[in-house]
C-alpha cells in the first residue's frame, strides 16, 4: 500500500500491519503523518502532532 504526501506529493509506503495512530514519514520531504483511520483498505492520513510539553513517561 502507498499513500500520497499532501505536502510534496511523494509516495509514502504503508506497511501491511499498520494500525491507527501509527506515524509514517514521507521519504521525500520528511514530514510525519499519523494514520487517522483505516477502513476497508482506505487510509486516511493527517500531519502528526508536534511533540508537546507533557509528552513522555
Amino acid at each position: 500500500m502507498e499513500a500520497e504526501c499532501e505536502m510534496c506529493g511523494g509516495n509514502i509506503a504503508v506497511p501491511e500491519d499498520v494500525i491507527q495512530g501509527e506515524i509514517l514519514a514521507c521519504p521525500d520531504c520528511g514530514l510525519d503523518f499519523e494514520i487517522q483511520s483505516l477502513t476497508s483498505g482506505h487510509i486516511s492520513l493527517r500531519p502528526a502532532e508536534a511533540i508537546k510539553e507533557d509528552w513522555g513517561e
Binding site: 494500525i19 491507527q20 495512530g21 501509527e22 506515524i23 499519523e34 502528526a48 502532532e49
Partner: peptide, 10 residues
C-alpha cells in the same frame, strides 16, 4: 488507551 503508537504499544 493511546495517543501515539510507539514501539511499546505495538
Amino acid at each position: 488507551i493511546f495517543d501515539n503508537i510507539r514501539l511499546e504499544e505495538k
